[in-house]
Design a protein around this nucleic acid. Structure first.
Ligand SMILES: [Mn+2]
Ligand SMILES: [Mn+2]
Ligand SMILES: [Zn+2]
Ligand SMILES: [Zn+2]
Lengths: 144, 144
DNA sequence: AGCCGAATTCGGAAGAATTCCGAAATCGGT
DNA sequence: ACCGATTTCGGAATTCTTCCGAATTCGGCT
């Protein structure tokens, strides 16, 4: 779930490079927000990101968090998913993957690749369409 | 996609029964709203439902549409899905099924059962969890 | 067919998440 | 260090949805 310190620093370094490659400025806000996601369990709302960075960055505004997260999704540094309640979560994992949702708590976690999910994208294509991606969401509840 | 007139009347009859079985009143608003979904392509926003019924029911309010759709989902007469933009669609099909989304237009259609999607729910279960459901969304764009 | 109480609907206000805006601050190339 | 473009800030605006109290409708009963 959580990344180790070394992996986080590695990702920060890559993120720096990515910003430069895209011609974007390396701002404190971008670094802090990206780091908050790497240090989290992986899926946070904008509000949660804002809360996570607030202690060390009390002036970092919520509107900057929103704008920054949007930028980071655009450049492929983060991904974005929408939950059933309509709220958006930002996802530190950008490669294609699927999700597990705890129905009671809303907690989201990543499903690792396995042969439990088999999607034949070729035959799923509607006539005249090209498939871009396919996403699976599995919902469950903790046994009590 | 669209249902024939006979099927729609059959569903309306079942819907009447369901309301009574649940001890709910059979109101004009409920009938009209449920019918609008049966006569549609299958997936509508509350706003679209309101628009669809407006001509014949100019006083049927949007807040009633919202309240009614919520009730109909609760009793299992309709289903509800949330799109990536956070907007909710009401779905005339209540049995488990998957969706295809046209990325450019947002148009949603149902994927029919096929062996192109294989989910092994047993092995997807997180430790200590019981799977309740799994949903697949396939995204594509029309070839130009 | 009319009455009555509970459920439902109405219209508008309120709420919540997100986006937009103009002004101030910051970044990075020179 | 300077300067211009980009980014950030704080608050207002927007959009979708829910909430609220008052009015209406439904359906069981007579
Ligand atoms: Mn690397
Ligand atoms: Mn039937
Ligand atoms: Zn994820
Ligand atoms: Zn559907």
């Amino acid at each position: 779930m959580k990344l180790n310190a070394h992996e986080i620093e590695h990702r920060l370094a890559d993120f720096n490079e990515l910003l430069r490659a895209k011609g974007l400025k390396v701002t404190q806000q971008r670094l802090v927000i990206f780091r908050a996601l790497q240090e989290s369990h992986g899926h946070l709302t904008a509000e949660q990101v804002h809360g996570a960075v607030a202690k060390d960055n009390p002036t970092l505004s919520l509107s900057t968090v929103y704008a920054t997260l949007e930028t980071l999704v655009e450049i492929g540094a983060l991904a974005e998913i929408t939950m059933d309640d309509g709220k958006k979560l930002f996802d530190r994992t950008t490669s294609a993957h699927h999700h597990f949702v705890d129905i009671d708590t809303g907690a989201v976690s990543d499903l690792e690749d396995s042969d439990a999910i088999k999607l034949d994208l070729k035959s799923l294509a509607r006539k005249g369409y090209v498939i871009e991606k396919a996403r699976v969401t599995v919902y469950g509840r903790a046994k009590k």
